[in-house]
Design a protein around this nucleic acid. Structure first.
Lengths: 139, 139
DNA sequence: TTATAAATGAGAATATTTATCATTATCATA
DNA sequence: TATGATAATGATAAATATTCTCATTTATAA
């Protein structure tokens, strides 16, 4: 139940927050603030875009969602299930796939150590063309 | 000589282009469009911000510079010396360090293959606190 | 030198995100 | 359950980053 998670985050349980959280659960995917806004409109919810941004940022601070800055302007958000993962992004159709690779994770830590860095976060995004025939064909 | 590279890129050799290219060479670092604009102003060059963006984008298309989308709004640009590398970014002081790790590169290729992706580009950024004592101390 | 096509500068326009503020809703407590 | 302190919302303005427009200027091939 979403209400519990929102309460745990120290936030009041409001309609916009419940709706946005369940939307993210339903879609699983990687949604921009505007995606969320439009999906809410489609469901007949009159929730302002400013509220969407505000709530997503609060969820991010609370650790409920993660924010990614892929190429192309808009940030995208997804539920944080605690399992860190990296991304493959198709430049043609926008499809996003996830992956985890322990070898890469370990190498990153070793590199940070060598440079005297304390890792707070990291982002690995592979951009390319996905397996779909429409995305593989040349320009 | 910068003029040659500009000409090779199929662009006319103009003062803004020569200045911007030599600025990137001089600084080596990772400059935002606004950084470039202000540095030019500091040198007494009256080059518009729009021109800076335009030229940087053209250089990117021509393969002369690479553009990175680190966290925090602005894109940063650096000369493309042909040697791909990834980045460590300090969240406190903004320092940027570069690294290459063949193991990570190979794993990425393997992952893309497994997912049926054709890699066009990739970005690995490790965010954290660098070795500087001021950056390591707690909040 | 000159004609042509491209580049520039200034400011408008766009896109994304954040801030402001008056109004409304939540929720602990009475 | 009613209530009041506090937080959240929606509408809009503002801030930020980047791109577009267009009249003027400049580079360069002939």
């Amino acid at each position: 139940m979403e209400k519990h998670e929102i309460k745990k985050a120290g936030l009041k349980v409001t309609l916009p927050r419940v709706k946005i959280l369940s939307l993210l659960e339903k879609h699983g995917g990687h949604l921009s603030a505007e995606d969320v806004y439009k999906l809410l409109l489609g469901e007949g919810e009159e929730i302002g875009l400013a509220t969407v941004y505000r709530v997503l940022t609060q969820f991010q601070t609370a650790g409920l969602v993660v924010r990614h800055n892929f190429e192309g302007g808009q940030s995208v958000f997804e539920l944080d299930h605690g399992d860190h993962h990296d991304h493959l992004v198709c430049l043609r159709c926008g499809r996003v796939e996830e992956f985890v690779d322990d070898t890469i994770e370990n190498r990153q830590q070793a590199i940070a150590d060598r440079h005297g860095f304390t890792i707070k976060d990291h982002a690995l995004v592979i951009y390319g063309y996905c397996g779909d025939p429409n995305c593989q064909k040349d320009d």
